[in-house]
Amino acid sequence: MIAVQSPLSVPDPRSVPSNAPEHCPGTNSELAGKSDACAGCANQDVCASGVTKGPDPALPFIKQRMASVKRKILVLSGKGGVGKSTFTAQLGWAFAADDETQTGIMDVDICGPSIPTILGIAQEQVHSSSSGWSPVYVQDNLGVMSVGFMLPSSKDAVMWRGPKKNGLISQFLKDVDWGDLDYLIIDTPPGTSDEHLSVVQYLKESQIDGAVLITTPQEVALQDVRREIDFCRKVGIRILGLVENMSGFVCPKCKTESQIFQPTTGGAKRLAEETGVELLGAVPLDPRIGKSADYGVSFLEEYPDSPASVAYLNIIERIKAILAN
């Protein structure tokens, strides 16, 4: 694997000095000037002194850029492989089905950017203009920004430490010309790490309207969602609700229902009751969802009669209703 350098620069001068060593912890880190990577660095003394710490200068620019975005939604999952990015794509397509609704999707899953593939725009590139970076458009009212557009190829690994990830997320928020948006959906990586904390920090003054948590029925996924719920409550993010993906499978021929992922501890329904989080709905397993994602087409449009499509649309209507209150 090789370390990928983005064709677009990712400057973050307050976090990583231009002449910093490769593994610089960043000037805002508690380890600034103190870690092993700092030994011999020309900036070691000033970083250790704390002089460089202070409010991030990007925050006013982010606030200004986000002023034209009405609703900002995080899509979270404690565990990978539960269908978070697929749900994000369906949510974006459903919002954009109304020609009057302007929608944006920001993919901050920096090490595993799958949104471009799911939306059928993996071969596109980001362009810059006098007003900033231009999103890649799936259709006139659905724009996307992802690090996936900046990689030389889909095989290249992104091996970035926290400061560089934070710098890119900052640029996505302050330098992308989203225009006037009704919804900005932010697809995050699994867990509760750098990317999540950065988004919360950068949008603190712009306000995050809520988070949708994605899980599957089995306990190994629910354990991680419990941590995600705890994260949201600790940082003050409103939880819009919980979605259970891959919730049973109905054979299209014999109509027999099977539980592919057994809800041994009661699934998302039980978790919602225990934590006081609303269960927005359960989406049954349909192999055509994966096929649609591979081909970059909207599952909702291709298979509108699928029980999964009905479940998706009911969940999305509930999200709209919650956000309207």
Score class of each variant (00 low, 15 high):
236 G>L: 00
308 A>R: 11
68 S>N: 15
277 V>Q: 11
56 D>W: 02
142 L>H: 04
71 R>E: 02
318 R>P: 10
260 I>T: 11
122 A>T: 03
25 P>Y: 06
112 G>K: 09
221 A>L: 11
319 I>A: 11
167 G>R: 03
313 L>R: 15
19 N>E: 10
115 I>E: 01
165 K>S: 05
153 S>Y: 03
233 R>A: 05
189 P>H: 09
234 K>L: 08
14 R>L: 13
300 L>M: 09
285 L>W: 11
62 I>E: 01
225 V>C: 08
128 S>M: 07
24 C>Q: 09
252 P>V: 15
8 L>D: 12
26 G>A: 11
47 C>S: 05
246 M>Y: 03
153 S>R: 15
36 D>Y: 04
203 L>V: 00
43 N>R: 10
24 C>T: 12
28 N>C: 09
278 E>Q: 13
10 V>H: 01
305 D>H: 15
100 E>R: 12
279 L>D: 09
99 D>E: 15
291 K>H: 12
242 L>N: 06
260 I>E: 04
70 K>P: 05
256 T>F: 09
268 A>G: 15
240 L>C: 04
138 V>L: 01
174 K>T: 07
176 V>K: 07
278 E>L: 12
297 V>C: 04
246 M>V: 06
50 G>I: 06
199 V>F: 00
183 Y>W: 02
234 K>D: 06
201 Q>D: 06
155 K>W: 02
245 N>E: 10
133 W>N: 01
